[in-house]
Design a protein around this nucleic acid. Structure first.
Length: 491
RNA sequence: CGGGGUAUAGCGUAGUCCGGUCAUCGCGCCUGCUUUGGGAGCAGGAGGUCCCAAGUUCGAAUCUUGGUACCCCGACCA
């Protein structure tokens, strides 16, 4: 028992840290706040990228790439944008090192000071809108639908693997439109792409909504987000889509001639998801034995472990396994055959459980005699022996079952941990003791929101999009409210 | 940036109060044999700038001073 995880009940955040390390997903690097994403973790991210990228392209977007560095002056163009990001920017001031004249190592060459400092992008609206100015003259140039896969840097005070790191990987879409309506439609369309990805691929139920003014993206008119509930009762913002209005067009003077020949500012959206989704994936489904991966995002969906006493036996087992692998691959199922003789079967079982491989097959001498194979599913930890014949069809069905089962489990958890409350006492009781989503009336003021946050640490995660209107009274101020909003403690 | 901690082998640790057979133990690693259907057993072995620097002392992982790094709590965190 070399690698045991802290139990979720004992210390949820320790459990998360243990899991990330022990499942070989990522580790802290020599650079404070920056992580190394290890091959196994990165291949999950690649699966996410591939699925999202396909969805972006199917909705008409193209990938492009913009610079890592942004001239400092660009940031001051949009007032609230700079205010939102100024405190967490990494700044490049010099472009050369030299040998220390005192003989100790190398130092920054003060003669190589930049005329204008460069900011390492925390997000790319400014450099992109500066670029779009050159691309747009007429309504015929619109819309522009670009996405970029990139790394960004935000100098956070406290970091956690995947959930908040100084450098992280993400995609950011930046679109330009001739009309307000079209930009708004785009914003909603991409929010829906995100929620579909979360639910269909990550098996993660999410709630769609708009952010309140205080939680809004710096520079946006409206921020939409998808919110997921983690197993410890905290919310994780898993993706955002912003309606930017004409804010950035005005800041970067991007005008176009419309059909009537009149000049107008361009309308914009931007939207993104990051490696934070890895954190959501881990925390939503995993258990005290390790990671639980949805089959659609698992680096390999099936692992096969041979159990043998000698080389001759292994050869026979491998022949039977090869036939099964062939049939699985024909069905598009990814499979890994682990016939290493450096690790023992029991070790491999524990290892692949820790890594969340959805289906494990084991085949030994006993099975050779009976033409059987042992099948274990990760989500329920059930284990059974079946005939080898048609095992590929059984697995094909099973993978769908697992995908659905973990979604349903997460959905049920969210349902059981979502509360409607009408008094502040009840609200505090749930937020402090149970956690989860709380639907409550709010008077719509930032002041009330801040007071609730200060007293309970709970914030308004979003104002639900598909929420029925309901008259009520704000739980804090008692003032009238038209609908409930979603509160939770958040990551 | 405030408050509190920690730094000993690849990882996790004991020892620090009270200076001297004190560098401990577990995991991991290497070799051999036996094993292999849930993280194997036995035997042997390798691995150390006790964070760095200066000081006190016959003698420092241990005491003093200064530095550095990291962790936790808070503040901050579209």
């Amino acid at each position: 028992m070399a690698k045991v995880l802290t139990k979720r009940k004992e210390n949820y955040s320790q459990w998360y840290n243990d899991l990330v390390i022990k499942a070989d997903l990522a580790e802290n690097s020599a650079v404070r706040g920056c992580m190394v994403i290890k091959p196994y973790g990165f291949s999950i991210w690649e699966k996410m990228q591939a699925a999202l990228d396909k969805m972006f392209k199917e909705t008409g977007h193209s990938n492009a790439y913009f610079p890592l560095f942004i001239p400092k002056s660009f940031f001051s163009r949009e007032a609230s944008h700079v205010e939102g990001f100024a405190k967490e920017c990494a700044v490049v001031t010099h472009y050369r090192l030299k040998n220390d004249p005192n003989g100790k190592g190398i130092i920054v060459d003060e003669d190589a000071k930049l005329e204008e400092e460069l900011i390492v992008r925390p997000t790319s609206e400014t450099i992109i809108w500066n670029t779009y100015k050159g691309w747009i003259q007429s309504y015929r140039d619109l819309p522009i639908l670009c996405n970029q896969w990139a790394n960004v840097v935000r100098w956070e005070m406290r970091t956690r693997l995947f959930l908040r790191t100084t450098e992280f990987l993400w995609q950011e879409g930046h679109t330009a439109h001739a009309t307000k309506n079209e930009a708004l439609e785009e914003t909603i369309k991409m929010l829906n792409v995100y929620s579909e990805f979360a639910e269909k691929w990550m098996a993660l139920p999410v709630i769609k909504g708009t952010k309140t003014e205080s939680e809004r993206f710096a520079g946006a008119i409206d921020t939409y987000s998808i919110e997921a509930l983690m197993q410890d009762g905290k919310a994780l913002q898993s993706g955002t889509s912003h309606f930017l209005g004409q804010n950035f067009a005005k800041a970067f003077d991007v005008k176009f001639a419309n059909k009537e020949g009149k000049l107008d500012y361009v309308w914009a959206s931007s939207w993104g998801v990051s490696t934070r989704l890895m954190g959501a994936l881990i925390m939503a489904h995993s258990d005290d034995n390790g990671l639980v991966l949805p089959p659609k995002l698992a680096p390999f969906q099936v692992v096969i472990v041979p159990i043998y006493k000698n080389a001759e036996q292994l050869k026979k087992i491998s022949e039977a396994v090869d036939a099964i692998i062939h049939k699985l691959k024909a069905k598009g199922i990814s499979v890994k055959y682990d016939d290493r003789d450096t690790q023992k079967p029991g070790w491999k079982f524990a290892e692949y459980e820790l890594k969340g491989v959805p289906v494990r097959l084991a085949l030994g001498a006993r099975d050779l005699e009976n033409n059987t194979i042992e099948l274990a599913r990760r989500d329920t930890l059930e284990k059974n022996t079946y005939p080898q014949k048609n095992i590929e069809s059984r697995i094909e069905t099973l993978l769908d079952d697992i995908q659905n089962n973990i979604y349903n489990k997460a959905f049920k958890f969210r349902e059981e941990n979502t509360y409607k409350v009408d008094t502040y006492e009840e609200f505090k009781e749930i937020i402090n003791n149970k956690g989860g989503f709380v639907l409550a009336h709010w008077d719509g003021t930032t002041e009330t929101e801040q007071k609730i946050k200060a007293e309970t640490k709970a914030t308004i995660r979003c104002i639900l999009l598909d929420n029925e209107k309901e008259e009520g009274k704000c739980i804090y101020s008692g003032k009238p409210s038209k609908q409930r909003v979603l509160f939770a403690k958040a990551y």
